[in-house]
Nucleic acid binder design. Structure first.
Lengths: 243, 243
DNA sequence: CCGTCTGTGTAACCCTGGTAGCAGAAAAAA
DNA sequence: TTTTTTCTGCTACCAGGGTTACACAGACGG
């Protein structure tokens, strides 16, 4: 089972899952038992799958990022609800209530993941109460993300939302070195994450650039004045740490 | 235990909880055990409590409605995240991850509820796996509400959002009788629920009234053309006809 | 019964942010 | 290389919807 996955991928699955918010602190034996029911799955970057299609299996991301978004068919616009990362599982909502989710999953990068039938995943939850110790807090975090998003959309302008988004994705390369935005987030992606549109994001970034707050190059964003950004972002309820 | 609550209130607590999405299908004995750790609590209409203050106890609503909202201190504007009703519990997010929620709870009506220390509620969840059979789907529903709200805010205009909101709260009094909006939802409340503002809601309702879609009187909204509302709720961000 | 309060109707204003469109730069594919 | 696609920068345009302000109605409280 795992020997196979080990030999193929570059990822140490068990180590990853032990640090995953979903499985951390779970007994190794139980984890093995779970893993034995998984199969590996890969999606190529850019692949889009509707909640309908993926609805019968529960997935856990091993590598790459996955965009869970809602779409307005009329305008073609999208909002990102979650940007899922290695260790995250989806679709949690379907897992909980058994109904398909009217969302689109889009592979932001090439994806490696594990998947198992929804029913199987639900069985564990019932049979392994220990799983709840990490699963329930994980659900809480996901709900918070949604609540914050909704609050932001209703209460704050695009400048504030963009500032907050960037701060949440600031990457500390080395102490003393310039702060940059985590790679591969296009203006388009940024826009979807704050419920806006590419042009507006670009406009705002240019403003900030003229004011010396940031510097943008293609596919790269360097924060020059963190303080200023923090002030612009400050306009909301409490913000959380970590990333 | 229950005898006491029975004697005081007009509500049959056990019957209510049996139909509550949180406790339905739970063994009567277990339910009694749980209830023995609850104490009764009442809030008067209009009372506001922050997530900080209420954060140490988990509540279950017996009667009345409770508004869980986020607020922007700068502008004073609010968005309703959930309109909680009898059978609902709060704060579920804090229950899950143990952190206080940066939200405001506002009693829409006079409230009767049960409350218990968060720790106690968490203990049940651990000790009574059966509880999960209703609790997890409940969480799913709550997450869906948040996801829909966020999606709506980002992707649809106020007209669409208002139409959807109204349709979600249409009350079928009698077959053949006029459809009305469920009582006590002021324009202000409606606005908060769609992440907008009273003036805009009123403006929209007047438009619809002129077009014969609805009729409004003080504290009352009658739907004349359900079909039209359904169409507006469906999807149509931009159209330019009529004069 | 009268003053006060809360909900509603309406108007003028105007600014954020979304639409449409194009052009150049970089990257990817051929 | 050349071609094609993906990102980015920039402009002109304008409408949705938010802000403010005031008047009136019914409800409420004393």
């Amino acid at each position: 089972m795992l020997a196979d996955t080990h030999s193929r991928g570059t990822v140490d699955v068990k180590a990853l899952l032990h640090h995953s918010p979903l499985f951390e602190g779970l007994d190794g034996a139980v984890l093995d038992e779970m893993l034995s029911h998984f199969r590996r799955e890969t999606w190529k970057q850019g692949r889009q799958v509707s909640g309908q299609e993926s609805g019968q299996r529960f997935h856990i991301i091993l590598s790459g990022r996955l965009n869970m978004a809602q779409i307005n068919p009329e305008t073609g616009r999208m909002v990102t609800l979650f940007l899922l990362q290695p260790g995250d599982g989806f679709d949690v909502i379907s897992l909980l209530d058994g109904r398909p989710d009217p969302v689109i999953f889009e592979a932001q990068d090439d994806l490696m993941m594990l998947s198992t039938p929804m029913q199987e995943a639900r069985r564990w939850i019932e049979e392994h109460p220990a799983f709840n110790r990490s699963f329930l807090p994980y659900l809480g975090r996901q709900m918070r993300i949604l609540a914050d998003l909704a609050g932001d959309l209703a209460l704050h302008d695009t400048e504030t939302r963009l500032a907050r988004l960037i701060l949440r994705h600031v990457h500390q390369e080395e102490p003393g070195k310039p702060l940059r935005l985590t790679h591969n987030l296009s203006h388009e992606s940024l826009a979807e994450m704050i419920g806006s549109v590419r042009v507006v994001v670009n406009r705002q970034l240019q403003h900030w650039q003229r004011d010396g707050v940031v510097v943008t190059r293609r596919g790269e964003l360097i924060i020059k004045e963190l303080e200023t950004l923090l002030k612009k972002a400050m306009h909301l309820p409490h913000h959380r740490s970590h990333s």
